[in-house]
């Protein structure tokens, strides 16, 4: 790589001059559209969050101060939605990272048909969210017609009506199924880069498989696990389609997360101000995570 202070040092004078001018011109279009895509909606959301603005009631407009926020934090639904968002996040992270780490280690071992098994295991990640959700809800979890119910009856148990009795757990199961392959894929890539000689040396020194896992594999994976947690967090904070097609946030508000609450405020109740205040909360939450993610990626970036 050439010295960053003078990247065109190897080029002849006039060429260097022309590319120095052209370079920024080529980056500019992407920067401009991304800037617009980020700034315009962000400013509008902030602006609306301080406004009285309801699409079905055009008479009340104007500056609302912090009324929208005050209404939001005194609304029990908001706190329930925050709680649901966090439960969903933590549960899915625990399941996907835990099982993903175990499976990554398993899939790093040679066994017959490993490549085919791996392809099957990561397939759920490519299924669109609306399909995953409806297949799980109807074909698997339906208390009368579903596979789980049939298995339960066969074993003499009472079939569980998942979406009535444990709605949030049902959503967690679906979302975990979608994201476990992601964790597996990333962690497997990381495990494969582990130095074999290091493990061999540990084995020679008499470290058993468990000791090898805890003292060599796991520390090696910590960075990748961190990345998986952060990327999943960004997506899991705003799970939407799975809830939209299965429970619509119900029963009651049992499966309403922050994303669904904002959607309902905006497009079902037309409360633009209230929805925007919720949107600002979602943005702040995501930014806390994003800060750490960008920092950890920046450390690896070579320009």
């Amino acid at each position: 790589m050439s010295a960053p202070s003078n990247p065109d040092a190897t080029l002849s004078g006039s060429e260097a001059e022309s590319t120095r001018k052209v370079g920024p011109l080529l980056v500019m279009p992407s920067v401009i559209v991304l800037l617009a895509w980020m700034i315009v909606p962000l400013v509008m959301t902030l602006w609306f969050s301080f406004q009285y603005y309801n699409l079905v009631d055009p008479t009340t407009r104007g500056f609302a101060g912090i009324d929208n926020y005050a209404y939001l934090v005194t609304d029990p639904d908001f706190w329930v939605s925050l709680e649901n968002t966090l439960i969903l996040l933590v549960a899915v992270l625990a399941i996907t990272v835990g099982l993903g780490t175990l499976l990554a280690v398993v899939f790093n071992q040679p066994f017959p048909g490993r490549n085919i098994a791996r392809v099957l295991a990561i397939s759920p990640f490519f299924v669109m969210p609306t399909v995953s959700a409806l297949i799980w809800k109807n074909l698997l979890m339906h208390p009368i017609y579903g596979v789980f119910g049939a298995l339960a009856s066969k074993m003499g148990l009472q079939p569980v009506d998942w979406f009535a009795q444990f709605p949030l757990a049902a959503i967690i199961a679906i979302v975990s199924w979608e994201w476990l392959p992601f964790a597996l894929l990333i962690l497997l890539t990381a495990v494969q880069s582990l130095d074999h000689e290091q493990r061999e040396a540990a084995r020679m020194d008499g470290a058993g498989p468990l000791a090898q896992f805890f003292f060599i594999t796991l520390p090696h994976l910590s960075r990748a696990i961190g990345v998986v947690i952060m990327i999943e967090t960004i997506f899991l904070l705003t799970v939407f389609a799975e809830i939209f097609v299965t429970t619509s946030g119900g029963p009651g508000n049992a499966t309403t997360n922050l994303a669904f609450l904002i959607y309902a405020r905006a497009l079902l109740q037309y409360d633009i101000g209230g929805a925007s205040a919720g949107g600002v909360v979602a943005i702040v939450l995501a930014n806390i995570v994003a800060f750490f993610l960008v920092r950890s990626i920046a450390r690896r970036l070579e320009v």
Binding site: A266, I272, S276, G279
Partner: peptide, 18 residues
Amino acid sequence: LLWMLSTKMLPPVGVLVP
């Protein structure tokens, strides 16, 4: 590059209304 990446972190639901 890092700034471009950070635009990806904006949750879609945060800008649904605008």
